[in-house]
Every structure is written in C-alpha cells, then in structure tokens.
Design a binder for these strands. Structure first.
Lengths: 246, 246
DNA sequence: CCAGGACAAGATGTATACATTTCGGGCTCG
DNA sequence: CGAGCCCGAAATGTATACATCTTGTCCTGG
C-alpha cells in the first residue's frame, strides 16, 4: 500500500556484515553493525529493521536487539514508533537544514581545537585516509569513497581534545550521511568537493585552526548546496504531514 | 567497603516523586522522573539506581526500567558498567571542562538564533521563570532556585528555532547541573550570578542576539570559575583510576 | 466487480524465569 | 589477632512465554 514513499526493503543478511553463522553477539556489535551500515549508506533511509530478523541474524534474543535499537534511536540513527518496526531515520527538510547548521558550528570548533594537537603518526593516518578517499574516487568505487570520506571526519572527531564536542560531531556526521542519501541530487556522484579534505589535513597538521575551521565551514555549506532541499520536492512525506496531534 | 568516596545511598521513594502507589508507568515516565531528579540535584552524583527497586517503585517489570536506564545512559545522565548497578554520572575534572566549553559554544549560538523569535506570550513565560527564580533566591529556598534556574536555560533550549542545537543544549544543561553538584565550592550557595538571567531575557526579547550570546558565554565562564576544579582536589576517584583495561 | 469485514501471520510490548556475577559477612586456619 | 576463603543474598544478563497490536489476505455480500 505504501502511503509514504518507502524505501522499505528488509536488510539482506549480506548488508549487515558481521552476522555470520549466528554466533553470539553483544548489543554493541549489533549497534556497530547497523551504525556502520547506515553511515556508509548500505542501509538507506527508511530501511526496516525487524527485531526477530536481527535476533536470528546475530544469534541472540530480542532483548539484546532491543537494547541496540534503543541506543540507535537515542542517537537519531533510526526511528521507533510504538508497535511499528524500527526504520532508518528519514529527517525532513527542516531538520536537515538544522543538522547542517549544527554541524557547521560544532565541526568548525572541533577543527580549531584539534589543529596542531596531532602527533606525527596521527597526521600520517589522516593523510592515508585522504589518499584512500582520492584513490576510491579516481577508480570510481563510490561505495568506498563515501566510506573513506566519512572516516576523515570521524577521525578528526575522535581525536579532538574535547571529546564532548567530538562525540557531538560524530553523531552529526552520521546524520549528515543519512540526509545526503535522502536528498542528493540524482545526477551528482557528488560530495567529493575539490581536494577539501587534503587541504584540511594540511591545515590541521600545520596548526592553523582558524583556517581549518573556515575551510570546514565552507566545505559544509558547499555540501548542503549540493542537496535538493526544495520544500515541495521529492520525498513528499505524507506520513508526517497527515499525522494529527495524537 | 567503599573504595571510592561514594555518595551511594539508594534513592528514597520520596526522591522520585511520581512513584505513588505503584501505578503502571511507561519508560518515558521513569526516564523523566530520574532526569528531573538529577537535574534538580535531588539525586546527587553517584546515587545508585537498582533496577528492582525502580521496577517496584513504578509498578512495572524490569524490562521497562532497563529501557529507561539505557536511554539515560545514552544521554549521559547515568553510568552503567557491566554487572553493576546504574548510578548517576560523576564526570571527572577534564570532562567537566569539556562540558563547559561545549556548552559555551552551543548555548551562545542558541541565543543568537533564538533572540527576536519569541512571541509576546513566550517572552512573558520567560520573564515569569526569571521572577520565580529570584523569588526563590530571596526567600532562601535553594532547591526551588536551582530548579527555576535550570528551567530558564531549558526554556531557551526548547524554543530555539534549531531544535537539533536545542536538544544538544538541553543535554549540556543537565550535565552542567551534575558537575555543579559535584564540584561546587563548599561555602557557595552560588550559581545566582547577578541578574544574568533577567538581563538575558531582556536581550532575547529585544532581539539582540550577539549581546545575548556574549552574555551567555560570560555567564558560563563565571559559573565554571565558581567551581573547585583543581585536579588533585576533592573527589579522588580511585575507582576509575584503579580500573585496568577490562 | 468492488466494498467491507473477519481472520491469520507476524510484528512489538511486557512480564517473568533462570543463569551468572558481584560483594559483603562470617568462619576457619595459621 | 588477622588474613584468606567460602558462601549466600541480591544485583544484573539473557532468553522466552504470552498479550496485544498492526497489517495484508481472502472471503463474502451487495
């Protein structure tokens, strides 16, 4: 029936990698698997996540799955409504704009704080991530490219001296990934903006926090502008429109 | 035995208000009750929260309680370690500094965005909160004063046009409340700084976002300076120091 | 042929049984 | 007298049974 444009297929067992053989898994394992799959856009927005299917996949009872799903809901990775299957979040246009605005604020500050604090070894790691991204881009492996691009931002979030802000940035990076999957303009392979990540790495290494912050800010503005955020357009979310008070 | 300076008493039934008569309660009810109790410092950092006690108090099974506790952990209200009772969070000095830094960043921006967007009715509500706080302060009802002070910030977070940032601010306000309870200098009744909240309300109403942001920033700097954050000092958290990898 | 309702499959919501772990009291042995 | 061990109360970890709700199918009556 599909009142709303639902991407709703079930995740194939292959989509959620570490489910092999139904070995015992902790709720952290399940959380990580789904998180990673959403981050890399293997699980598109709207994907449904039935508890029983997951519990069989991971070889645990529904209790564990439910704990993982509750945490994923708290982190805005999925949405849970009473008596309905959990599904990967589908933020509307307004929330998308708010996510970008919040991320610009937070990520800029993270750049300021992180610049000049990375050890040589860490800088090398960072440069490798950037190189991998470029390689994936050049050889057209789009899946890998998205993955590597996310890893650049996550690396910086993870190594920010202020871990409270770092954690916020981590969450915002994920939500950004979701809205990109939702709203990216059809033709665009997109999101490989110049060599922004390479230049960012250089500024971070050099310790120029202000320039890094400015670059990150502009990077995110450019990214948002690549999206198709005309209110009326695409995923006409009838569901949320037609949902009265209750 | 108490290896760490544990505030650890169990919450009396009276501490968690809406537990009357063991009526059925949703996980949201439990979440809210504990959240509110922590926010207003009725449940001090380190307080233990046994699942069975809570389930009896609220008249539900442990499943519901566990869901509430999982969410509270996600929001950094409580800490859960494997096989140990949940307890109200006790951030260390470093995390405290990070919380304040993050909150300065976020709350300043929230002020910028919120200034000039409140309806007349909303401004009235805000002024009433400020008035209530002052009244509580003047009559020495410290509990009420803390509550009202928190409500001012939460009101602004709730009515920020950017709800993603608003939600972040809400979480940071709570964590601030926790660290104030932990690290406030003994003698200080504190945290009623001049008439900052009153002036803030005026600036917000007038629409001067920049001034409001600056005031909020300075307000938070002053607040942090009231705390006793000498690394070596008070709550010598042996527990976390002596906890090896596992 | 279509509209409408009964029904069944399958999902989540909740409670509970049982396994496992923690931790303190108290006994025993040096 | 004190150190160390044993053990049991009580907490959490996990699985599962059962209730309830949602939803799609199929049957029936107009």
């Amino acid at each position: 029936m599909a009142t709303a444009p639902d991407s709703g297929k079930f995740p194939s067992a292959a989509t959620l990698a570490p489910a092999r053989g139904a070995r015992k898994a902790s709720d952290q394992t399940i959380y990580d698997s789904i998180y990673e799959a959403v981050l890399t856009q293997r699980l598109p927005p709207g994907s449904r996540l039935p508890e029983v299917a997951l519990s069989e996949m991971f070889g645990v009872s529904r209790s564990i799955v439910r704990k993982a799903l509750t945490r994923l809901t708290s982190d805005h990775v999925i949405e849970q409504r009473p008596n309905q299957m959990a599904m990967v979040a589908r933020p509307d246009v307004e929330e998308t704009r708010q996510i970008f605005a919040a991320r610009r604020l937070v990520e800029s500050e993270v750049m300021r704080l992180t610049a000049g604090t990375l050890s040589k070894a860490r800088v090398q790691e960072l440069r490798k991530l950037v190189k991998d991204e470029k390689a994936a881009h050049d050889s057209g492996r789009d899946q890998d490219r998205v993955h590597c691009s996310m890893e650049v931002h996550r690396f910086l979030a993870r190594h920010c001296p202020n871990q409270v802000l770092g954690r916020m940035m981590r969450d915002l990076v994920l939500r950004t990934s979701i809205v990109i999957a939702l709203y990216k303009s059809p033709g665009i392979t997109a999101c490989f903006l110049g060599d922004d990540h390479g230049r960012l790495a250089t500024l971070i290494a050099k310790g120029d926090g202000e320039a890094a912050a400015a670059l990150a800010h502009d990077h995110l503005v450019a990214l948002e502008n690549l999206l198709d955020l005309n209110d009326d357009s695409r995923p006409i979310d009838l569901a949320s429109i037609l949902r009265p008070p209750s």
